[in-house]
């Protein structure tokens, strides 16, 4: 049996997609959550001074999406053809585009500018991305994003909206398609079990 150890901060952040793949696969892993005060010491031991880090039988793998893709291929959430995998990648890139926009507001120090950026997120950016995701979902029949079963794409979209929904619970009120998708993914037995026991964190 392989052993997996995932090191990250005590947060969902860039590690959550990997955790969700483990959950969906029913695969045990050591969820090594480090505290802020431990980080300076641990940072020195990380390949690029960064987390997340996945260790597979002790061998280190870095870079969050590379890790998630590796696990998705390993456990069968990476589509069933090159075309499906391309559709999954397309959605991962779109999720990353949306995250970049969210980070702009998150990283802004000037309170006025921050407020403007947050307003822009709610008024323009989220509706734009929600529209894109809805269309992709509808084009594939409305249930899953790619093919006819759960894939890394579904998990990535689920994780993407965790933070914005925490801030604005009505964000998806006008998108019945995305709401239904969220429910479908959250209620699959293994994910449901994981979400129920997942540690609550702000991010």
């Amino acid at each position: 049996m392989r052993t997996y150890r995932l090191t990250y901060f005590d947060a969902r952040g860039k590690a959550e997609l990997a955790r969700l793949v483990f959950a969906a696969a029913g695969q045990k892993f050591e969820d090594n959550r480090i505290q802020k005060d431990e980080w300076p010491e641990i940072k020195k031991t990380m390949p690029f001074g960064q987390v997340p880090l996945l260790e597979v039988d002790g061998k280190p793998l870095a870079q969050s999406y590379a890790i998630a893709r590796y696990l998705a291929r390993e456990f069968g959430f990476a589509g069933s053809s090159n075309w499906e995998l391309a559709q999954i990648d397309q959605i991962l890139d779109l999720v990353d585009d949306a995250k970049k926009e969210m980070l702009k507001a998150g990283h802004e120090k000037d309170p006025d500018k921050k407020k403007d950026l947050e307003q822009k997120l709610q008024d323009e950016i989220f509706p734009k991305f929600i529209g894109f995701f809805e269309k992709l979902l509808k084009d594939n029949g409305g249930q899953f994003f790619v093919g006819s079963s759960l894939s890394l794409a579904d998990l990535a979209v689920l994780a993407l909206f965790d933070n914005p929904l925490q801030k604005n619970p009505s964000l998806l009120d006008n998108s019945s398609a995305l709401q239904a998708h969220r429910k479908l993914v959250q209620s699959s037995p293994k994910i449901d079990e994981y979400l129920k026991t997942r540690k609550h964190t702000d991010m």
Binding site: W83, L85, A86, D89, Q90, D93
Partner: peptide
């Protein structure tokens, strides 16, 4: 998406 295209 350029990176999805490249991977494909």
């Amino acid at each position: 998406q350029s990176h999805a295209i490249i991977r494909y």
